[in-house]
Nucleic acid binder design. Structure first.
Lengths: 153, 153
DNA sequence: GATGAAAATCAGAATGT
DNA sequence: ACATTCTGATTTTCATC
């Protein structure tokens, strides 16, 4: 891993808030030149630090108001079952994120759906014993106080 | 809330994957014209469906490899204590998201930090009884199988 | 070798009809 | 839907530290 200096961090902070900030403005704000910022951004991209630029949509207005925290326990884990589960979750559009965790459960998911019905169908489809799932705990979010993609560097 | 038609959904799907996709390409892919796509995007922005465009960084390479799921229980909740807690979490750069949940706990957070030490300092600073926190459960992610910001529409 | 300034070129967005 | 205009990114060059 490479060390990020003041300019790199400044650039990343700015782009994480608005990916379409003009280079001229970036240069001003990090007290550097357009050429340098350009070179730095290219390097950050090449190194994989800057992954991509995406548009964020309002989950409620886009029709996916329900966020669910799901804890999953799998049958006597072997690597294959874990890998299969991960791979299947990657393919589900309802699954926003999936983490392997330590403790009682094996995975923590964050799922967004349009309605309870849809969530019910989703769990019945994906979290069956046929898929080696032995325990499911669903926790419904009542309200989102904060949702941030920016890592302040 | 407005209904999103096929073109709107197509545009949102594309921009959620790459916010800098040229209008010409968007138009082709949703089988419409540049002018229409331009108008739709403007309207989606004005309506708040499209929130903003941001750069995503690699959390490990950017030096924040540790993701923690935190469950928080507050003292005998009244609206003021809840609101204060939410407000405080909004100000913490370590807190990526904060949801009010139903059940045993009051809030679920997702926190990213550089190290265990930093996490320890963070919890000691923020989750004290002085701040009306009565119960904290931390769950450490061992591995991120999926992280997606796109809502497939 | 990395930086900053300047100039020329190009792509895409914005605008007007 | 088309043509024009404008903005910003891209590329190159050059001088400098």
């Amino acid at each position: 891993m490479r060390e990020l200096d003041r300019i790199d961090r400044g650039i990343l902070n700015i782009l994480q808030e608005d990916a379409s900030t003009p280079l001229r403005e970036i240069a001003e704000r990090v007290h550097s030149s357009v050429a340098t910022c350009q070179r730095r951004i290219e390097k950050l991209r090449a190194d994989g630090v800057l992954v991509k630029a995406v548009a964020l949509v309002d989950r409620v207005l886009a029709g996916r108001p329900l966020t669910v925290f799901v804890s999953i326990e799998l049958e006597k884990q072997n690597t294959d079952i874990l890998k299969q589960f991960e791979q299947r979750m990657r393919l589900q559009p309802e699954v926003m994120s999936c983490y392997e965790v330590a403790g009682e459960f094996d995975f923590h998911l964050i799922v967004t759906v349009e309605s309870m019905e849809e969530y019910s169908l989703f769990t019945r489809r994906e979290f069956t014993s046929h898929h080696n799932v032995t325990n499911v705990k669903s926790l419904f979010a009542m309200n989102c106080s904060k949702f941030e993609t920016k890592l302040t560097l």
